[in-house]
Design a protein around this nucleic acid. Structure first.
Lengths: 355, 355
DNA sequence: AGAATCAAGTTAACCGTTTAATTAATATGA
DNA sequence: TCATATTAATTAAACGGTTAACTTGATTCT
C-alpha cells in the first residue's frame, strides 16, 4: 500500500496545507502557535488544526533544524567517572528540558576513548547547548579543553552539573553547598563529643576541597586545632581509600571520620571494621551524597549529607536554557542537609520501625 | 568580523566547492568516500580533500538528515528503574556505536512522566533505531506499547539491552545467561553444604524468573525438593525486600539465600543480620550483578554473579546496527560467572591481600 | 471621497545536503 | 572513420520546513 517498504508515512506540511486549502506558510504559522496579532482568523486556524490532528502530522525535525539553525537539542557529555547518581540527575535535567521542547543527546568521554562523537555534534550544529556531567580526570583534560573550544566556536553555552571540572572549562556551574555539607557533617560529629576527627578527602577537586573547608570550619568553630596527620587526600578509587584508611587507623588515633563521598565511606567503613574497631562505638563515620540504594543498608546504616541530585539536574537545565535563550538565570547554591543514621552514633529508626 | 554575533562560522559544501573549483556534487561524492569506480580523478579528490581540511569543513547534520532521510542517531529510552550499572552498559553501547558513525539520543520514561519526548523523536525521523534500557514497571506498559507502535510505524528496529521488558514490546533482546547465573549461585551454596536455600526473587519479570529457574535447576540436580515457603517473589523495592526477609527469617529456617539482584541482596544482608544471624556462618548469601562499587565492601563482602554490563551494551549496539543496515547479527547469549567473596562462606583475599 | 490603516493571507527564496540524470571529452573497437 | 564505451565531471531537482516581503480587500479617519 505504502510506496516505500519501510512503512514510513510521513505527513508533510504541504500535505496538510493542501487538505486545508491554505498555503504552507499559513500552516507553519498556525502550528508554531505564532500569535502575531491579526494574522490568522479563527476559522482558518481551526480548519488547519483539525487537518493536522486528523492526518497525524508531526514536523520533520531535520527540516526544522536546517531551516531555523536551531536544533532544540542539548549535548550531555559524561566524563570518566560516572557516579551512580547520574541517573537521578538526568531525570532532573529532563524534567525541565523536555517541557521546554528540548531533547538530549548523550556522549561519553574517557581517557581511553578519547574524544568520542561530541566533536561533530557541536561542529555540525546538532546541539544548542552543552551539559557537563561526571568527573573529569587529568587524563581527559585535553579532551575537555577541546570540547570547550568547540563549544565556543559553535557559540553554544556550557553548563556543568557539578563543580567537578577545572574552572576554565566548566562554563556556568550548578553548585551544591559543598562547604556547608562538610561543615554539617563534622559539626554533627563534634556534637557527638568527638575531637579527633579524620577526613578522607580527594586531592585536586574543587568540590572535595570545599568539603574539606567545611571540615576545617567546623573544627575551628569548636576550637579544635586541625591535625595534619588526620587529613588524607587521595584519589576517588575505593581500593586506595581502603588502604589509606587502614594505614591511618593503624598509625594514628581518631574517634571519627568524615569521608567526602559515600563511595569512599563504604571503603572506609570496611577498612575501619577490618582493623577491629566498631562503628560507631570506636569510630564514628559520616559520608556525603546519600546514595540511598546503599546508605540505608550498610552496617551500620550510614549517616551522610543528602545531595540533591534531582534538583541539581533541574537547576542545570534551567540555567542552560536561560543561556540559550538569552534570559540569564542566576545560578543558585543548592542547600544540602545531613541525614543521620547510625554510623555517627545516632539512633536510626528508619529500618527499625519497619520490622 | 563574523556576520552573526554567535561566532558560528559554518563552512558549507558550496564554499569548499568554490574554493576547489568544482561542483557541490563532486565535493559531496568525494567527502562521503563514495568509491563508485571511475567517478573522481585522483587530482580532483586531493584538491577537494585539501580544501575541506583547510577550511575546517564538517557537514551540517540536519541538512544531511533531511536529504537522506537517515539520522544516524539511535534513541535510547530508559525506563522507570535505572540501575546504577546503566552507565557501564552505555559505555559498551557507545564503544560500538560511535565508531560506526552513530550518535545517541536519550530520553527517560517513568510512570509519572508519561511519554516524554520520545514520541516526536521517532515520528519526526530523528532516530534510526531504538535501544531499550532500564526496567519497565506495569505502570508504564502503555507508554512502552506506544513507543513500540511508533517504532513500527517509523520502520525503525528496537533492541532491548536486557530482558526486562514484556516480550511483545522488547524487539530483539540482548540476553545474559540468567538461568545459568541462578544455577551457579545456588550450586555454589549447595557445594558449601546448604540444603535449605531461600530465594529472594522478583515476580513478573523474565530475567528474575530465569534466575529462579536456575535456582530450581540446581536444587533438582542435587536432589533437593524445593520448599515453596523458601521462595519469595516480591518487587524490586529494597525496603520491601528487607521486610520480607525479616519475615521469612523469623518464621522459617534456612541456612542460605540467593537474592536475584545485588540491590536486593544488600537489603537482605541487613535484614538477616538484624535478626541476629551471622553471615555467612548462620546464613550464607549470594547476589547477582556484581556491582563492584559495593559488593566488595559489604560486611561480609558479597559473593555474586558477575553481570557483563559493558559487553551487553556492545552486543546490543551490534545487533541494532545490524538490523538498521540489514545485516542481521545473531543474538548471542552472554555468559555470566560467579565471583566468590565471603558471604557464601568462601575465603576472600580480594581485600585481605591489600592491607 | 481619497488616504491611511489593518486583517488575513500568499509568494518565493532559503537552509545545506544528496543523487538521479545528463553532458562532455576521451579512449576503444571494428 | 564512426559507433560505442568509459571516465570525470556537472545540473538541477528534491528533502520539509521558515519567514521576510508582498498582496488584496475591507475599515477607519478626516
Amino acid at each position: 500500500m505504502s510506496r516505500n517498504g519501510s512503512g514510513k508515512h510521513k505527513v508533510t506540511l504541504a500535505q496538510i496545507a493542501d487538505a486545508a486549502n491554505v498555503s504552507k506558510a499559513t500552516v507553519s504559522l498556525i502550528l508554531n502557535g505564532n500569535p502575531a496579532p491579526g494574522r490568522i482568523s479563527e476559522p482558518t486556524r481551526a480548519k488547519v488544526m483539525q487537518a493536522a490532528k486528523k492526518m497525524g502530522y508531526s514536523p520533520n525535525a531535520a527540516a526544522k533544524a536546517l531551516s531555523t539553525g536551531r536544533s532544540n537539542t542539548i549535548l550531555m557529555v559524561v566524563f570518566d567517572l560516572w557516579d551512580e547518581n547520574l541517573t537521578e540527575r538526568i531525570r532532573g535535567v529532563e524534567a525541565h528540558l523536555v517541557p521546554a521542547g528540548y531533547t538530549t543527546r548523550m556522549c561519553t568521554v574517557d581517557a581511553r576513548g578519547g574524544l568520542s562523537a561530541y566533536a561533530n555534534i557541536l561542529s555540525t550544529g546538532q546541539a544548542d547547548g552543552v551539559l557537563l556531567a561526571g568527573v573529569a580526570m587529568p587524563d581527559s583534560y585535553p579532551t575537555l579543553a577541546n570540547l570547550s573550544k568547540e563549544a565556543r566556536l559553535a557559540g553554544v553555552p556550557i553548563v556543568s552539573l557539578t563543580n567537578t571540572f577545572p574552572a576554565e572549562y566548566a562554563g556556568t556551574v550548578t553548585y551544591i553547598d559543598d562547604e556547608s555539607g562538610g561543615y554539617q557533617a563534622v559539626s554533627h560529629l563534634i556534637e557527638h563529643g568527638h575531637r579527633r576527627i579524620a577526613i578522607l578527602g580527594v586531592a585536586g577537586h574543587p568540590w572535595a576541597e570545599l568539603r574539606e573547608m567545611g571540615y576545617l570550619d567546623a573544627l575551628k568553630e569548636a576550637g579544635i586545632e586541625p591535625d595534619p596527620k588526620l587529613i588524607i587526600r587521595g584519589g576517588v578509587d575505593q581500593i586506595e581509600a581502603y588502604k589509606s584508611t587502614i594505614e591511618l587507623a593503624t598509625t594514628t588515633d581518631f574517634t571519627a571520620m568524615f569521608a567526602v563521598t559515600d563511595n569512599l565511606a563504604f571503603a572506609a567503613l570496611a577498612a575501619i571494621k577490618k582493623t577491629g574497631r566498631r562503628v560507631p562505638e570506636d569510630c564514628a563515620l559520616v559520608g556525603f551524597d546519600n546514595n540511598t540504594k546503599f546508605t540505608r543498608f550498610t552496617d551500620p546504616p550510614l549517616t551522610t549529607i543528602d545531595n540533591p541530585f534531582y534538583n541539581t539536574g533541574m537547576a542545570a537545565a534551567k540555567l542552560l536554557i536561560g543561556l540559550i535563550t538569552n534570559q540569564p538565570i542566576e545560578p543558585v547554591l543548592l542547600p544540602v542537609k545531613l541525614v543521620s543514621r547510625r554510623s555517627c552514633g545516632c539512633t536510626c529508626e528508619e529500618l527499625d520501625s519497619i520490622s
